[in-house]
């Protein structure tokens, strides 16, 4: 490989998130076992694996969404910028402002488009006045690639939008509170290919400002949008590497079997 190509593929990015020895239990059942993973800053990391492999469970550890699940217990260490997010003095509300989340099914609030985006900044006190709030809402809609389609109907209900537009509204809502990390759990599984392509294009733009972790069932999507890929299987992290390496030359037979669609 030429030096120039090697350079363009280099992934020297600081680890934004570090997970070490993470175990997760739902009651007696161990859902994740000894996960050690670095999430590089300003990169898209894709978590892939069959249903029930623990990829969504791991994603939910990163903003402590598992806290609200009865009987769920998380062991090990997860740090963001070196600070333990499971520390006793960690404010969970503050954490979730730093770590935004976009879900499988678009879930706008039953409010106007404007209010959907304004809600977060208002409760976190990010905009001192009406003018600042207006700017922030417009800026977020712009960055989510939605402004052009909704600029003349910001007062319409968020739920009046199409599925793909609703998902971009949810992304605008997530980025309005200026998070550092955005978690996406199957963000395109309810969308058609055109709406999916728009979200994927958006994800690629967003990574210059945010660090993104995406869980996806679509391997083609993982290949298209991410720079790093982690393969989970039966609660274990089997293999992690550059997306190119995982999809052209995986080292583990289980990864190979999964991504080539073989009976593992």
């Amino acid at each position: 490989m030429s030096q120039a190509l090697k350079h363009s593929l280099s992934t020297e990015h600081r680890a934004k998130v570090q997970a070490r020895g993470v175990n997760v239990y739902y009651g007696d059942k161990k859902a994740l076992s000894g996960i050690g993973l670095d999430i590089p800053e300003h990169q898209v990391s894709a978590l892939i694996g069959p249903s029930g492999c623990g990829k969504s469970t791991f994603l939910r550890c990163l903003n402590r969404m598992n806290d609200i699940i009865e009987g769920c217990r998380v062991e090990g260490a997860i740090t963001i910028d070196g600070a333990d997010i499971y520390a006793k003095d960690q404010d969970v509300v503050q954490l979730r402002a730093r770590v935004g989340m976009v879900f499988q099914k678009p879930n706008p609030f039953p409010k106007s488009i404007y209010e959907n985006v304004a809600y977060g900044p208002r409760i976190h006190g990010l905009a001192p006045g009406r003018k600042e709030l207006d700017d922030l809402v417009r800026d977020s809609l712009e960055r989510a690639g939605l402004m052009g389609e909704v600029h003349d109907r910001l007062d319409h209900p968020g739920t009046s939008l199409s599925g793909g537009q609703q998902q971009r509204l949810c992304i605008a809502r997530a980025i309005a509170v200026k998070p550092e990390l955005i978690l996406m759990d199957e963000p395109c599984s309810a969308l058609d290919p055109i709406a999916t392509a728009k979200i994927e294009e958006l994800i690629d733009e967003l990574r210059t400002r945010f660090t993104i972790v995406i869980v996806t069932h679509s391997m083609q999507q993982a290949a298209r949008v991410s720079q790093r890929t982690a393969f989970f299987h039966m609660g274990e992290l089997v293999e992690t590497g550059s997306t190119e390496q995982i999809f052209t030359n995986p080292k583990d037979d289980r990864t190979q079997a999964y991504i080539t669609g073989r009976i593992g």
């Binding site: 052209t248 030359n249 995986p250 190979q256 991504i259 080539t260």
Partner: peptide, 9 residues
Amino acid sequence: RQPMALDLR
């Protein structure tokens, strides 16, 4: 088929 990994190679 969008082959991957060994299949792609």
